[in-house]
Deep mutational scan, measured.
Amino acid sequence: VKKMAKAIMADPNKADEVYKKWADKGYTLTQMSNFLKSKTAGKYDRVYNGYVIHLD
């Protein structure tokens, strides 16, 4: 998940494709939050927020 999150950060155009894969795998927002937690607070906030919007 972190590898794909980094791919989104490097190229935001990949976001919809990645979010669809995550949704197809049934990842919940709680799971995504836990996967994307980082020592650098807020590092993956943009990715998480994008997934929230995708699921909505």
Rank of each mutant, 00 (worst) to 15 (best):
V52M: 13
V18F: 07
H54Y: 15
I53L: 14
Q31T: 06
K43A: 07
K3R: 13
Q31C: 08
L29I: 10
M32T: 00
Y27M: 04
Y19I: 02
H54D: 01
A23I: 05
D24Y: 08
D45E: 09
S38N: 06
L55A: 02
S38K: 04
T40W: 09
R46D: 15
A41Y: 10
Y27G: 00
K6T: 06
G26A: 06
Y19N: 00
Y19Q: 00
D56T: 15
P12I: 08
M4T: 05
I8C: 07
V47H: 02
Y19T: 01
L55P: 00
V1W: 04
T28F: 00
Q31L: 07
L29T: 09
A5W: 04
A10M: 13
V52W: 07
K21A: 15
S33G: 12
K14M: 14
A10D: 13
A23Q: 10
K20D: 04
R46M: 14
T40A: 09
G26S: 05
V47S: 01
W22R: 00
N34C: 14
G42R: 05
Y27W: 08
P12T: 05
V18A: 06
K43V: 07
F35A: 07
D11F: 07
H54S: 05
R46I: 14
N49H: 12
Q31N: 05
T30F: 14
N34V: 13
G42Q: 04
T40I: 11
D24K: 11
T30S: 13
I8K: 03
K39T: 13
V47R: 00
A10V: 10
W22E: 00
E17C: 12
T40M: 09
A15M: 06
Y48E: 02
S38G: 07
Y48I: 13
M4H: 06
Y48S: 00
N34G: 12
T30M: 13
D45A: 11
Y44P: 00
A7N: 06
D24N: 11
M4K: 05
V47N: 00
L29Y: 05
K25S: 14
N34W: 12
S33F: 14
L29F: 06
K25I: 13
L55S: 02
N49Q: 15
F35L: 12
K6D: 15
L29W: 04
N34M: 13
K43S: 05
E17N: 08
D24V: 08
T28C: 05
K6Q: 13
A5L: 07
H54T: 04
G26H: 05
K39P: 09
K21Q: 15
V1C: 09
L55C: 07
K3P: 04
T40S: 10
D16E: 14
V1K: 04
K3E: 13
M4R: 04
M9Y: 04
Y19M: 03
R46E: 15
Y27V: 04
G26Q: 05
W22D: 00
V52D: 04
A15H: 05
G50Q: 05
E17H: 08
A5M: 04
M4I: 05
I8W: 01
Y51T: 03
M4Y: 07
Q31S: 06
K20G: 08
A5F: 04
M9T: 03
Y48G: 01
G50D: 05
L36I: 02
L55G: 01
G26R: 05
T28R: 02
D45R: 08
D56M: 15
G42L: 05
D45N: 08
H54Q: 03
K20Y: 07
